[in-house]
Write a protein that binds this DNA or RNA. Structure first.
Lengths: 255, 255
DNA sequence: CATGTTGTTCTGTATTGTAGAACAGTATGC
DNA sequence: GCATACTGTTCTACAATACAGAACAACATG
């Protein structure tokens, strides 16, 4: 007897949809704005938001007079991340990689058709190439990121399509937008053990990714180095990949 | 006309209380367990949890058969952290401090009577003294942490009591448990510009903290170095504090 | 086999969420 | 200065719906 995950409390489901309206691009929202976006009644949204304010999870931005998610919401992050058993090992190895390779290193997991970034580390001497920030909770498509493609390349072929968006939207000129192209790229990645993102998601950013497994062989996520194209020249890809692969191997051995 | 933050949708408020049952110490919970804890009806909790599962924010732990918060919840973290404008500057300076002082550095903000940790950095060469992990979203009392006391010491005296728990619970032998003692400590911290936590929260851990302000003078949080007592000897406190103070000053100048 | 746990399903009732209209407060236009 | 067009907020009446309670299934445990 399994919980099917039915929507049994409609008002609660509505509220979650309201919370999802707050995004990195639109972190500040007004009542009417939300109501329009979700086709809900103004007073309905108002009641929900008021309750969220009462509980401390939403607050009014005093300067814009709009609502936004409050820091209290971060308390949930800690509950989630502190139960990830491989966290310490992964982060330690990532930091070492960052220092050795002098690049930002990212770790993320598969989440439907997207990568969900968990950890990121920066080189010990931080240049101005990087905007230093936590990426925890950011999402990006699997099909156009090195991290995503590394994960996809480690999946059984028949499972891949379930994790692809219906339409492979081009973000840049180099984005792979046909399934055939992508599958060929994944096959190549699988055979050589690493994936490459040649500015397929963000213009001017190149990444090299590898899948990450736990001791039991279970795929736990992916890891990549990321940086401006001019800092990751073609003839350096091999070296970076080798380091990533051995780091991934070390994680596997230490989990 | 201000939103008073009334609880207008009771079922939603209940659900938030359900989510709050999931903590770092008890991340896996059963239906009955939650119902008992909150004195709610089993079927009531079941309906809520089912809805949360349907929306993807809660999942069943396949090994324990209990429920837990899912990674999807982290998406909110990114929405929140990416709107913090001083993030890049603070993290960059923290990483530099970590490297220079060879200690873990923590940054957090005041949240009621608690510190809410946001960022933490580790020295470039990570020893085994540290369990490397993200502290984002973790909480600790203001009155017994260097970070908390640094923030309190920067507040107007009359505001302090509003941010103190009713009862100053002793975590260790050295925890300051009387308001008088604490106020004296805060006065000292304010005068010299830094606070010290002598294993007042966690046995064997010593921290040195300073308040952090933005350019306009507004208090945005606190920052501290933290480590095992044997690595932060008495005669090194002054040096660490000086570095922290100048780092805090630099943040202020660059925001 | 009995007892005590779970999680899950179902149903009738009354609690409560919600739509819609009305109001207040602010900004922008002419 | 008077409209107009936005906001967020309050109120109320009605019906949708959340919920208590009982019952059941699936496991344990003794």
């Amino acid at each position: 007897m399994e919980n099917t995950g039915e929507v049994k409390v409609k008002s609660l489901y509505k509220c979650l949809k309201i919370l999802e309206c707050f995004t990195a691009k639109t972190p500040d929202l007004g009542i009417t704005e939300i109501a329009k976006k979700l086709d809900l009644n103004k007073s309905n949204v108002f009641n929900m938001i008021s309750t969220l304010v009462a509980a401390g999870y939403v607050e009014k931005n005093p300067t814009t007079d709009h609502y936004r998610l409050s820091l209290k919401m971060l308390e949930f992050s800690y509950v989630i991340t502190s139960r990830i058993e491989y966290q310490a090992i992964v982060m330690q190895i990532m930091q070492r990689l960052s220092n050795e390779l002098n690049h930002a290193v990212l770790f993320g997991v598969m989440h439907g058709t997207q990568v969900l970034y968990l950890y990121n580390t920066y080189p010990k001497s931080i240049s101005n190439d990087y905007l230093v920030r936590s990426l925890m909770g950011e999402k990006a498509p699997l099909y156009c990121t090195s991290l995503g493609k590394a994960i996809l390349s480690a999946l059984p072929k028949e499972e891949v399509s379930a994790h692809l968006d219906d339409h492979l939207v081009p973000f840049t000129k180099t984005t792979l937008t046909s399934v055939e192209e992508l599958m060929r790229d994944l096959k190549l990645s699988a055979s050589r053990g690493f994936s490459v993102d040649n500015s397929e998601h963000e213009q001017g950013i190149r990444c090299i990714g590898v899948p990450v497994r736990a001791r039991d062989g279970r795929l736990i996520g992916g890891m990549c180095v990321s940086g401006p194209v001019q800092h990751i020249p073609d003839d350096d890809i091999e070296r970076l990949a080798r380091n990533l692969i051995s780091a991934s191997f070390e994680i596997r051995n230490r989990t």
